[in-house]
Design a protein around this nucleic acid. Structure first.
Lengths: 231, 231
DNA sequence: ATGGTACTTATGTAGTACATAATATTTAAT
DNA sequence: ATTAAATATTATGTACTACATAAGTACCAT
């Protein structure tokens, strides 16, 4: 058709609801004014009046910010800004069942990337206690008879690595991603027998006992190599 | 009304609002029923009646889910489930100014982890076009005179690496994290002159031209070593 | 001062009414 | 009869009011 090119100039109609706009404005308000956690923000009715919308709309916008952990509200105290919880939004969405197949795959790749790169944080912060814990898991895995027990050890081992990294945000991220991983692992196991990588958990622990951070990334790459094959 | 209750039995009161509970229930409803994107969900009034709350409350809950990208709503068509946008919630929160200092630091560490571990995805998906693009950036950087131009090249280079990984979720994640990085880099630059790592961008490109994925993680570690020192 | 009482205030919830836009239905026109 | 226009229908979006509830505040009595 002739007019097709012209169509590109058309932008998707904004069609933002009032609540959307109010949310955006409040967000900007918070950021621009550099409001510190603990500070109070205007009352709902004041905001409604100032913005020229109904309190209802303001509440919808505030409800979203509250969900994100940006604000907290008490009955009479009004609303105060809180330290936003970075991972809160992710928690609600990252449920394997409602994720696109492709996104699931991408999140799984993200996990591989994280674990390969995790080395330096671990080496910087590992303690004897951590290493002993890994030893125990490896030992438990060696004795494990059932498949379920082995999988549990697998999860424990890698979770402990994230713990050792001493980065709460990262650890939390991993926890949120866990169900996605399980989902993908199950899918992979149907695809082919997940051969164990040439580097075992025991090998990884040995490297961690040494102080040779250089070896870690490639060791982990080899450990995860069965998964990398699916790229 | 009656006498006082035993204080020991008092638990940290949850004090969930109706909207909170409705949100949780709707969330569960969506997941349990395995509703596929495109499917319709009941009307607001129906939900309100079924849950025994006012439509107002239902709307607050729906508003949150809509913000997360879980549902979409058109005027008459009702509401339909959509593919949730994994990163949407993060986008709104990850503004450096409102983040805890510690969280900022942790996110910056996350970036280091990501880039060190990024190698295998890049090697699996890199193309000639990508490599040429990196060449161009390195060349631009070599000729750069101002500090600003150099920093821009720095950002472009690393952004391109994420692009090469061919993982949209990951790329998006990096884009969202960018402002946080800038914030931290500025902070670091005050702390001490950010000496360039012993491995340059040109060195990294050379490795990417070769097909030796083994070298990448440690090369990147050395490249980023000035940042790692702040651990 | 201490403790209680009543008052005040801001959020939370309910309910009604209407605007708006998209669909469905009916009517009109060629 | 098929198409086009007008109309009715319906679900979301917005506004407004009213009241419940909890958390401060002030005031009072002992």
């Amino acid at each position: 058709m002739k007019g097709d090119q012209d169509l590109y100039t058309l932008q998707p109609i904004a069609s933002l609801t009032m609540a959307d706009q109010v949310e955006a404005q409040l967000h900007e308000y918070i950021i621009k004014r550099a409001i510190r956690p603990g500070d109070a923000i205007p009352k709902e009715q004041e905001l409604a009046d100032a913005l020229g919308v109904s309190r209802n709309v303001v509440r919808e916008a505030l409800s979203r910010l509250r969900m994100l952990g940006l604000i907290d509200s008490k009955k009479k105290r009004g609303m105060i800004l809180t330290r936003p919880d970075v991972m809160k939004g992710l928690e609600r969405i990252l449920h394997p069942a409602i994720l696109d197949e492709q996104v699931r795959k991408q999140l799984f790749e993200l996990r591989l990337v994280l674990e390969v790169g995790l080395g330096d944080l671990i080496f910087a912060r590992k303690t004897e206690v951590h290493l002993k814990k890994l030893d125990a898991i490896v030992e438990r895995e060696r004795k494990a008879t059932t498949q379920i027990e082995k999988i549990r050890c697998e999860l424990d081992f890698h979770s402990t690595l994230y713990e050792m990294a001493g980065n709460d945000t990262l650890k939390r991220f991993q926890t949120i991603l866990l169900p996605v991983f399980e989902y993908v692992v199950e899918y992979e196991s149907k695809l082919q027998h997940t051969s164990v990588g040439s580097v075992t958990h025991a090998d990884l622990v040995k490297i961690l006992y040494s102080n040779n951070a250089e070896e870690f990334p490639n060791a982990m790459r080899k450990h995860l190599s069965p998964h990398f094959q699916h790229l």
